[in-house]
C-alpha cells in the first residue's frame, strides 16, 4: 500500500492545461471551442458537437457544497493521518450544473484537513485554495467560508 497521497498524472494532453493552471493558482473548466458546452472532468471530445477543439474557462473560485463525507479508517496511510478530514463536492457559483470533487483545506493552503466536520453543511459557501503536493501538482481544494464571511475578507487582502 502506498504511503503517499496518490497524485494525478499531469501530462495527459487532454488535461495538461488544467494541472498547469493549478500551478498558477487558477481553476479551469473545459469549454468546447465550437459549441460552448462546459464539462468537468475534462474529456478528449465534446459530447454535444463531437468537436475536439476544446478550450478552457477560468472559475472565479467560489462555490457551494453539493454534498460531503468524512472518511474514517481503514484508509490509505496518507489519508489515515489526516482524519478527520472532509471531502466535498462543490458546485462553482459561475458554472451551474458542474460538480467538482475537492478536499477541504485551510485558505493558506497548508494541507488537506484541519477543518472541523461539525461546521460543514450542504449548501455552505466555499472558496478555492490550492494545496501543493508535488512540483507538478497543486491540488485545487476548498476552504469553508465562515458565517461572518471572515475568510473572504482574508482572501481579498
Amino acid at each position: 500500500m502506498i504511503e503517499t497521497i496518490p497524485l494525478p498524472v499531469t501530462d495527459d494532453p487532454v488535461d495538461r492545461a488544467f494541472w498547469q493552471a493549478c500551478l498558477e493558482g487558477r481553476l479551469l473548466v473545459q469549454r468546447c471551442g465550437d459549441c460552448g458546452h462546459v464539462q468537468h472532468p475534462p474529456r478528449a471530445m465534446c459530447p454535444v458537437c463531437r468537436s475536439m477543439e476544446l478550450g478552457w474557462s477560468e472559475c472565479v473560485g467560489t462555490g457551494t457544497i453539493w454534498s460531503f463525507t468524512v472518511p474514517r479508517p481503514p484508509l490509505l496511510p496518507a489519508f489515515a493521518g489526516l482524519v478527520p478530514y472532509v471531502v466535498v463536492i462543490v458546485e462553482p457559483d459561475d458554472f451551474p450544473g458542474i460538480r467538482i470533487v475537492g478536499a477541504l483545506a485551510g485558505i493558506e493552503g497548508n494541507g488537506i484537513g484541519g477543518i472541523d466536520p461539525e461546521t460543514i453543511a450542504i449548501g455552505g459557501p466555499v472558496r478555492l485554495t490550492f494545496v501543493s503536493l508535488a512540483d507538478d501538482v497543486a491540488l485545487p481544494c476548498w476552504a469553508p467560508v465562515a458565517a461572518d464571511g471572515s475568510l473572504e475578507k482574508d482572501a481579498q487582502q
Partner: peptide
C-alpha cells in the same frame, strides 16, 4: 493515477 480516479482519489475520496 492516469484514469478518471485522478479527479477524486487525490482528494481523499478514495
Amino acid at each position: 493515477i492516469d484514469d478518471h480516479w485522478k479527479w477524486s482519489r487525490p482528494h481523499g475520496l478514495s
